[in-house]
Design a protein around this nucleic acid. Structure first.
Lengths: 196, 196
DNA sequence: GTGGATCCCAACCCAAACGTTGGAGTTGGA
DNA sequence: TCCAACTCCAACGTTTGGGTTGGGATCCAC
């Protein structure tokens, strides 16, 4: 069978994403990444260096995707903000691995993050969209655009960050993904609505 | 020197909290917990069982504290909700280990959490406070009380869950703890304010 | 004070997992 | 055709770290 470097790398990386997302840096073994990919462990070392380098590579690759994932058109009012929040929520639901990588990265508490510059740029464009809408008086400007954008993401992401808390708080009246999504949209809309 | 079981246990547990908070379950070694406490590793096993039991014990203990930490008086209006959000935020700031344990627990994705029953009870009282205030028309009732309470906690906790995101989103206009706190309070107040 | 229970530690065992090596198969160019 | 470079794997060396054991010190009940 013909060699296929690119394909081998791709499969290893895909496998690494899954394992790291599921178990974190400490809980993942190189052995398992390789086995899941059906490739020999040694390839990991020659292609990606040691375990923490591999982790950094995976984070950089995948989290760039997260930052860029949900398109943000011009925000023409609170309703658009609610729709954006819902889209982010849906994205989390469809890509739980990436959400988890993001959280794991947060827990690592690095002074700087892999690929920080390009990710910062992505976020900058998101924040700019909020700021523009604020300047046009289309959405509430009672707090800086960066804070508003960040808090919208908080509303969408918290469900996935602490699912156990969501479960316990909704013990008496279980939240479905749909009710959660509806509450999130209401909240986002409200945050974005200018005071009267 | 006289034996002191209680003190030994206390020191081990304190050390375990610090290590688990910093490195998670997978990243922590029993060796390091013991060394940090200045106690022999074997004590961990006789007192607390194996590593995951120790982790569960620590979680149960500390997260019960978190749950009970921030008192929630009767919510007599949106301002009280904002104050509660700020108190939670301040608590996170003062006890970063506990926040991190909570997040790590979330990533473990257990079907059930240590001490689930008592923690559920505790959250129930928080949610009840929101629900009561809603029924008295003191705060917004456009979404279930559990959702509102949960989202308030999201606003307060997200800064600590993904500090790297907070940093990148505020690259152009760095957020200080104070500005973050102010934005949080505004947002909480807004969510809790009834529609006109 | 004696004996049994408890506390604690140093040293140990061993499985798991990190990372490497030697070699066999494959390719492509001189 | 030959050989240098590349791809991949099985097997290995070594370290880390979870968990245990044996024994000495201390306490306490009698």
């Amino acid at each position: 069978m013909a060699w296929n470097t690119a394909e081998t790398k791709r499969r290893l990386k895909k496998s690494a994403v899954a394992e790291f997302a599921a178990h974190g840096l400490g809980g993942t073994t190189m052995e398992r990444i390789a086995r899941r990919a059906g490739i020999n462990k040694e390839r990991l070392y020659t292609y990606f260096g040691d375990k923490s380098q591999l982790f950094a590579t995976v984070l950089a690759d995948e989290l760039n995707k997260v930052a860029a994932a949900v398109p943000l058109n011009d925000l023409d009012g609170p309703e658009a903000v609610a729709a954006y929040a819902a889209a982010v929520y849906d994205y989390h639901a469809e890509h739980p691995e990436l959400t988890r990588l993001l959280l794991w990265e947060g827990l690592l508490d690095l002074p700087e993050v892999p690929d920080e510059a390009s990710r910062t740029d992505y976020y900058r464009t998101k924040v700019a969209a909020f700021t523009r809408a604020q300047q046009a008086n289309l959405i509430s400007n009672d707090m800086p655009g960066a804070d508003l954008a960040f808090l919208i993401l908080a509303l969408a992401g918290w469900w996935y960050a602490v699912p156990q808390m969501a479960r316990m708080m909704h013990a008496d009246d279980p939240a479905t993904p749909d009710t959660a999504r509806a509450a999130l949209m209401r909240a986002a809309r409200k945050l974005a609505t200018p005071a009267v």
